[in-house]
Amino acid sequence: MRQESAGVTEALLDSARREFMEHGFHGASLRRISADSGVSTNSIYTRFGDKAGLFAAVVGPVADGLMEYYLTCVDQATDTQDSSSAMETGEEGTDGVLRYIYQNFDVFYLIFCRSAGTEYEQYFDRLAQIEETYYRAFADKYAKSPEQITDFFVHVICRTGWQYIYEIVSHKLPFEEAKVFMDNIKQYRFAGWKAVLGHE
Rank of each mutant, 00 (worst) to 15 (best):
I33M: 12
G60A: 09
G96P: 06
G192C: 11
S115Y: 02
Q122Y: 13
V169Q: 07
G93E: 04
S15P: 10
H171I: 00
L13Q: 06
G198P: 12
M67A: 12
M182D: 05
R2I: 04
V58L: 00
Q3F: 06
R99N: 03
G90I: 03
K194M: 14
K194G: 06
L71D: 14
Y102W: 03
V39R: 03
G24E: 15
T78G: 02
F190S: 08
F181Y: 15
Y45F: 09
G192R: 08
T46L: 03
P146W: 00
E132G: 02
Y164A: 07
V74C: 00
V58H: 02
L71I: 12
G7P: 14
E131S: 10
E132A: 03
Q103E: 15
L13D: 07
A11D: 15
Y100K: 00
Q148L: 14
S170T: 10
H155A: 08
G49L: 09
A128D: 03
T89M: 13
R114F: 01
R47P: 04
C158E: 08
M1L: 11
D106I: 03
G93Y: 05
E131H: 10
R189N: 13
F55L: 05
Q76H: 12
H199D: 12
C158M: 13
E4S: 11
K186E: 09
F181S: 04
P61M: 03
Q187N: 13
Q81T: 13
A63D: 13
H155L: 11
A139W: 11
A52I: 08
I157M: 08
Y109W: 01
Y135W: 11
K172P: 07
L98I: 02
V196C: 01
A63L: 12
I149Y: 07
I165R: 03
Y166D: 14
E22Y: 00
A28K: 08
V169D: 04
Q148I: 06
A63E: 13
G27P: 09
Y70V: 01
